Amino acid sequence: MKRLFLASALLAMTPLAMADTTVELHKATDEGVSDSVGTVTFEDTDYGLLATPDISGLPGFGMHGFHLHANPSCDPSTEDGEVTPAGAAGGHFDPDETDTHSGPYVKDSHLGDMPLLVADNDGNIKTPVLAPRLKESDLAGHAVIIHEGGDNYSDTPHLGGGGARWACGVIEGR
């Protein structure tokens, strides 16, 4: 009985590690989200937020913009009669209101700017990336989006030229 009490006391004093955050991403369409394209798992490290994708279905090799967006929605939006897939996710997460798209390594930039993801020849993304300015606690209540095209981390062309929103996933609050 004494051993059981000691084991319980030790467990109670041991801090529990926060579970990693995994978000499922779905193809973004004019009608809403459709089939799952995979997941991204996020975890804090000493160097920032590690994002480990397991994504498939992209149309071949290439770079893709990857961002944390302001709103927790993947619904389409309509403005001036034009539909934007996952448009309800809003703009990039920018709590400091920098209004600047300069990438994940520049302090005075959208906090939601994350490193590019690169698809292999089969349209799969498996290589982890590190977002040095983000923490797992920043994710809740936002959407993560993968864009069809790359990202040059500038404001020209608009938001680095990532193009259409290809996939979206909502990160629920904790």
Rank of each mutant, 00 (worst) to 15 (best):
S8K: 11
A9T: 14
L11H: 05
A17T: 15
M18L: 15
M18R: 14
D20Q: 06
T21C: 12
T21E: 13
T22D: 07
L25V: 07
A28T: 08
T29I: 11
D30G: 14
D30L: 15
D30H: 15
E31Y: 14
V33I: 11
V37H: 00
D46L: 04
D54Y: 13
S56L: 08
S56M: 07
P59D: 10
F66H: 03
F66Y: 00
H67V: 14
L68Y: 07
N71M: 14
S73Q: 01
C74N: 08
S77I: 05
T84D: 08
A88S: 07
A88Q: 12
D99R: 14
T100C: 09
H101E: 03
H101C: 01
H101A: 06
S102Q: 13
S102A: 15
P104Y: 06
V106Q: 00
S109F: 02
H110F: 07
H110C: 05
G112L: 04
L117Y: 00
V118S: 06
V118A: 04
N121Q: 13
G123F: 03
V129D: 03
A131E: 02
R133N: 09
K135P: 09
E136I: 15
D138G: 08
H142I: 05
A143R: 01
H147R: 00
H147D: 03
H147Q: 04
G149C: 10
G150Y: 05
N152E: 05
D155G: 02
P157C: 05
G163Y: 01
W166L: 03
C168T: 00
C168S: 06
G169I: 00
G169F: 04
I171Q: 09
I171T: 10
E172W: 01
E172Q: 09
R174L: 13
